Computed example of a mutant assay.
Amino acid sequence: MSDELKQTPFSSSYPDGVVEWIDIFGYAVPLTWGDPNVECAAVRNQAAAFEFSMLLKWDVEGKGAIQTVNSIFSRDISEMKPGTIAYGVVVSEAGKMVDDCTVFVYGPELVRIIGANPIVGDLLDHYRTNNVTVSERRDELAQLSVQGPLSREILQKLTSSDISNDALRWYHFMTDVDMAGMKVQISRIGYTGELGYEIMLPVDSAQAFWDALFKVGEPLGLLPAGAACVMMCRIEAGLIMGEVEYDHTMTPYECRMAWSVDLNKDNFHGKDALIEAQKNPSLDIVSVILPGEGEYDGVELMDNNKKVGIVTMAIPSPYLDGQFLGLARINRENSSVGNRLDLSMESDGQAEIVATPVYDPERVRSRS
Score class of each variant (00 low, 15 high):
residue 2 S to R: 09
residue 7 Q to L: 03
residue 12 S to R: 02
residue 24 I to F: 07
residue 26 G to W: 11
residue 27 Y to I: 05
residue 36 P to Y: 11
residue 38 V to C: 09
residue 39 E to A: 03
residue 41 A to Q: 04
residue 43 V to Q: 13
residue 44 R to L: 15
residue 46 Q to E: 12
residue 50 F to C: 02
residue 55 L to W: 11
residue 58 W to L: 07
residue 62 G to S: 05
residue 67 Q to C: 02
residue 72 I to F: 07
residue 76 D to Y: 00
residue 76 D to I: 01
residue 76 D to G: 01
residue 77 I to R: 01
residue 82 P to R: 00
residue 102 T to C: 12
residue 105 V to R: 02
residue 107 G to A: 11
residue 113 I to V: 11
residue 122 D to Q: 09
residue 125 D to V: 03
residue 126 H to S: 15
residue 128 R to T: 08
residue 130 N to H: 11
residue 134 V to H: 07
residue 141 L to D: 15
residue 149 P to N: 09
residue 153 E to C: 01
residue 161 S to F: 08
residue 162 D to F: 00
residue 168 L to Q: 12
residue 170 W to N: 09
residue 174 M to E: 15
residue 182 M to W: 07
residue 193 G to Y: 06
residue 197 Y to C: 11
residue 198 E to C: 03
residue 202 P to G: 02
residue 204 D to K: 04
residue 204 D to E: 12
residue 210 W to M: 07
residue 217 G to P: 00
residue 222 L to R: 04
residue 224 P to M: 07
residue 228 A to Q: 13
residue 229 C to I: 07
residue 231 M to P: 00
residue 235 I to H: 06
residue 238 G to K: 01
residue 245 E to M: 07
residue 245 E to G: 02
residue 253 Y to E: 12
residue 254 E to Y: 04
residue 263 L to V: 02
residue 272 D to P: 01
residue 279 K to I: 08
residue 282 S to Y: 02
residue 287 S to D: 15
residue 321 D to T: 08
residue 322 G to Q: 13
residue 322 G to L: 08
residue 323 Q to L: 11
residue 328 A to D: 14
residue 336 S to A: 14
residue 339 N to K: 14
residue 352 E to K: 02
residue 352 E to I: 03
residue 358 V to R: 11
residue 359 Y to F: 13
residue 364 V to L: 10
